[in-house]
């Protein structure tokens, strides 16, 4: 059993479709820790000590958020800036996250085709997410391919949300092929590399 810590961050939960559906599924899972970042810190008063203790107590960290201007919502950035300190996540003595796993779960308004050199977003989604990838690398963490829901404004999120539940369950139960999840480009609900299923 891996100890799994799931963060969800959405500043306008009442108008959310995709992220809300995902969160509902996650809340039905047993044996994981779930944190709604905007509910926990509505005034951005992030408790650094508490957050670091939380990170220390878990093996797999999942960050779920909608893509806003090719990045994360502001509070996620604030959380990273404050919690992933020098001496904790990186630098001298900053090996507290070493060996842990980081997974992003991202929803985007743009459709999959748009995220390519030919598409109107001009770049691969993974290119936009390189800051997170490098953050994980600097913290000596394992960075998995992000679990992505493209075209979030037009598609029914139900299958994606259920797949998210399966993904987190597999991570918790160590039934996800991490090597495969590390090397692939993105994860979707129908391409999960689960062990013992292929």
């Amino acid at each position: 059993m891996a100890r799994l810590l799931h963060y969800a961050a959405h500043p306008a939960p009442s108008s959310s479709q995709a992220n809300r559906a995902m969160l509902r599924v996650v809340r039905g899972l047993e044996g994981i820790t779930q944190v709604d970042l905007y509910a926990e810190y509505p005034r951005y008063d992030i408790d650094i000590a508490e957050e670091q203790a939380r990170l220390l107590a878990h093996d797999v960290i999942v960050l779920q958020f909608p893509l806003f201007w090719y990045s994360c919502p502001a509070l996620v950035k604030e959380w990273l800036d404050l919690v992933w300190e020098h001496g904790f996540a990186y630098g001298q003595g900053g090996d507290k996250l070493k060996g842990k796993t980081l997974l992003l779960a991202v929803t985007t308004g743009g459709p999959q085709e748009a995220y390519s050199a030919e598409g109107y977003q001009h770049f691969e989604l993974r290119t936009f997410l390189t800051p997170f990838e490098q953050t994980a690398r600097l913290a000596q963490m394992r960075f998995l391919a992000p679990y992505v829901f493209h075209g979030a404004l037009k598609r029914d999120p139900a299958a994606h949300a259920l797949g998210f539940g399966t993904l987190l369950g597999a991570l918790r139960d160590e039934r996800l092929d991490l090597r495969a999840a590390e090397t692939t480009d993105i994860l979707t609900h129908d391409t999960l590399p689960l062990i013992g299923i292929n």
């Binding site: 500043p11 306008a12 939960p13 009442s14 709604d36 905007y38 509910a39 926990e40 509505p42 005034r43």
Partner: peptide, 9 residues
């Protein structure tokens, strides 16, 4: 009353 804390804020 169930409002999300960030929206309440």
């Amino acid at each position: 009353l169930g409002m999300h804390p960030f929206e309440a804020e």
